[in-house]
Structure formats: C-alpha cells, structure tokens
Design a protein around this nucleic acid. Sequence first.
DNA 1: CGAGTGGTTGACTCCCTTCAAGATCAGTGG
DNA 2: CCACTGATCTTGAAGGGAGTCAACCACTCG
Lengths: 240, 240
Amino acid sequence: MKILAVALPKVRICAVGHWPADRIDKDGFLILDSVVQKELAEIASLVSYECKEQIFAQATPAQYIYIPHSGAVRVAHQLADGRNQIVAFYMPGEPFGLGENGVYLNSACALTDCLLIRVPRAALDALCAHEPRLQQDCLVGAMAQLRLSQRHLLIVTHQRVLKRVADFLLECSRQQEVFDPVKNVLNLIMDRSDIADYLGTSVETISRTLGKLEEDGLMKRLDSRSLWLDLSKLTNLLNN
Amino acid sequence: MKILAVALPKVRICAVGHWPADRIDKDGFLILDSVVQKELAEIASLVSYECKEQIFAQATPAQYIYIPHSGAVRVAHQLADGRNQIVAFYMPGEPFGLGENGVYLNSACALTDCLLIRVPRAALDALCAHEPRLQQDCLVGAMAQLRLSQRHLLIVTHQRVLKRVADFLLECSRQQEVFDPVKNVLNLIMDRSDIADYLGTSVETISRTLGKLEEDGLMKRLDSRSLWLDLSKLTNLLNN
DNA sequence: CGAGTGGTTGACTCCCTTCAAGATCAGTGG
DNA sequence: CCACTGATCTTGAAGGGAGTCAACCACTCG
C-alpha cells in the first residue's frame, strides 16, 4: 500500500439508476456539491494497492470507508470452518468497508492494481452531520448495497449451478466497465476461484459449467477471461 | 387490511447494538426525539393485517415503508422460474419495504396477525430532509439491514444443509422475542415451508435435517414450532 | 366425518463435491 | 530460443448429499 501525495481526484460515486436525474453526470456518477468535494478532499487520501494485496482484514478496527477510483476489489468473509465466501466485487465508484461495533465484518483484497479514495469513518460521520446532502447520498448508497446483496442472494440460491453461473454472467454484463454490448463480450475481472467463492461452489464445477453453457451455445470462451455471451439465451435459461 | 383510527403508538425502531448507548431504551429500541415522534405521527398510520394476508406485492408502486409494531412479516422475491426465495423475516421494530425505481423489489406477507406502522415514503423523505437525526437513523437502519442480508448470504451458502439449518437456528436464537435463553427453547414463527424457502432447500430436507440434528442431540423438537437447542453443540457443528 | 393443511418418512435419481491427473499459459533463467 | 516451473484452468472418475415424487400421519376445521 502506498499513500499518494497528490491532490485528491474528484470523488466519483457510482449512481446507477436511483438518484434524481439532475444529480447524475453523463458517466453515471453522482454529482457532489463542490463544497462537499472540497471538504471531502480535506479528510480523504488517495491510496494505491497492488494486485492481490490485502486492503483490510476481517475483525480489525474499521477506520476507513474506501471508494475505488480505478481497479477492482474483492470483499470476502472467512468462516470458522475455513470457507471463504465472497460477499461482493467492487468497481470504481462503489463504496465499501462495512463495519459492526467498530470492526470490519469482512476482509478486502485488490483484484487488480488499484487506486482507492480512503475516507476516515469518524471524519465522514462528522461531515455528514452538517452536510445533509452527503448524509442523504450515504443513505441512498447503503440502499443500493442492500439491493446488490439481495440480488447476490437470489443468484447463489439457484439450486442448479448452471443457473447460478448464467445469472452471474448476466449480472456481470450489466457493468459497463467490463461488458461490450456491441460485441457481447464480457471481460472477467476475477479468476475461476473467485467466481466459485462468489457462487458457493468449486472451481471444477465452474469450469465444467462454463463448458456446458458453451456446448449448448449460450456463450463462448474466447480466452479464460473473456466470454462471448448470448444474453437472450442466458436469460431464457433462468425462466425454466 | 384495516386502517386503525386510533392514536399512533410510539414508533419503536429496533436498535440492536449499533447506535450510541444513550439513544437506546431498556428494551433495545431507538429513542426518537419527541418532536420527531410527533411529526411521524402526522404522516404515519397504524394498519392491521391478518395472518397470511399480503401486505404488498413485488413490482407494485412502493408507496410505503412499514415498521412492525406487533407480529411478524415475511418478505420474499418471486423469480421467473417460479421459485419463491424468502429474503428476510421482520419482527417488531425492523423497518421493511425496499423499493427500486419506485416499485417494490419483493413482496411482503403477514406471518401472524400483526399491527404495522405505515409511513408514506414521500412524506418520510421530506421529513428526513429537515430532520438530520431521523435521516441518520435511516442510514444506520439501512446498514443494519445490509449486515442482516450478508449474514443471510453466509447462511444459505453453507453447502451441507445441516450447517444451513444449524446456523439458521442459531440466528433465530438471537431474537429475544422468540428465544428463551433460560430454557433454551426457540419458538419458530414460521412453518417448514418458510424455512425451506429461506434456506434455499425443500421442506422434506428441512424435516429430515431436523431429525438428524435431534438424533445427534444438538436439539429436540418439543412440538413442531418449539425447539430445545444446545447452542454450544450447534455452534461447534459450524466449525467443522 | 371428510377435507385440508402441515409435518414426516421412504425410495430413487442425479448433480455436485472431492480427489486426482492432465492441459494451457506466463514468467524465469540458462 | 527453449526448457523449466508454478499458477490457472480443464477434464476424469467415484461417491454421497439432496431434490423429487409419493405415501403416510397428526391435527384442525367446517
């Protein structure tokens, strides 16, 4: 980890679909009041992590909230029996760092080299207290996270792994950063092991399931990280 | 459904563990400012539902937020393939009614006869806009929901149903309303089918799994809705 | 009493986990 | 340039857990 001694870039918070239209810029990010931006700049830092570097560990003091500026992050929960359940992947603009009783509930790890905006929780709380709009943004952000978590729940509870994978691919294809809607090509930011830990299954099953989907013409592996998808066939699979 | 033409009872919001101590009363509920209580009383109504009555349906306009005053509620999501995934159960003080783009994401159904405090979303938003403390409470509440959802995720992703059921029982045993920590007896508020839909499995498997747990001495069915639990043995099961 | 609901048990099938080995690829150093 | 190595991905085989369909039991209610 390195703290970068440069001016903080503009804080960009992902805002897909749930904010009033006049608060969203052309790239789908939230427009923050310039005063708020300035105040944030005073308390936040820009930090960089290398691929596979741990950002924070489960059950350690939850001092910061992070917002990816570039790169991608994996947040997972380790259970007593050794299982490692991935809770979510985070792309630029999606804040993470949920705590409970002052400690992190999960651990976070850089999927790629990445730049993160790091905001001290205490200072953010204080700032929210006299910036109602920021407070409101945090609330809307928390509800967005809740929706994502419920969506994840619906994905992992498909009994047949075939549906889990299909649903997962469709979910990924909604992210502009990784899906080319013209060529219908999805660029996976995570490896098979991450997909398995996200879907609650094993790498072997993921591999076999991708094979099955390809065999049935619902998608095609261009290489292990880039997949051509037939969105309508995949969607259709979920209806049966 | 019946709208009750009585004075609104005090709005009680469940506050387990994550609010400053001076804002929590002896029963574990959030202490709201009396002015806020009064303002809430002006926009909220008290409504009653009978057991098994639908409160709202998925994909219909999300006009209200509900807070159970008494009774219990089941919130579920219906999928295109006919599956009914239960997203959460709600007890007194736990607000529900998540929407997206103006419509409910899930449907809600009364598990028992219940009284709910019904708050129009628009009026609540307006109230929050000039009541920062209420806004803050909503944010903390949303994060509590997020934690619950992530906890649910961890429960349903246990591969062996035995662990799912054990974890589920432990989760239930945390709720004072349904668990007697002296006798170690849990009173289930839902039937087998609800447990199955919550855990992503079938009623038959639930029944068999309870049999297995009883056989191994981790719990005992006093009757179909009340279970004696050996908390330490159940916890221990999750570590293997 | 019969119908209906909720819960349990039995039998069979199959999907997925597990363990193992092979295949592919990127990086490294001779 | 090529052999070597380790990581990642894929494929194979065996075994078991859970879904499904069906029947049965207990209880409630009209």
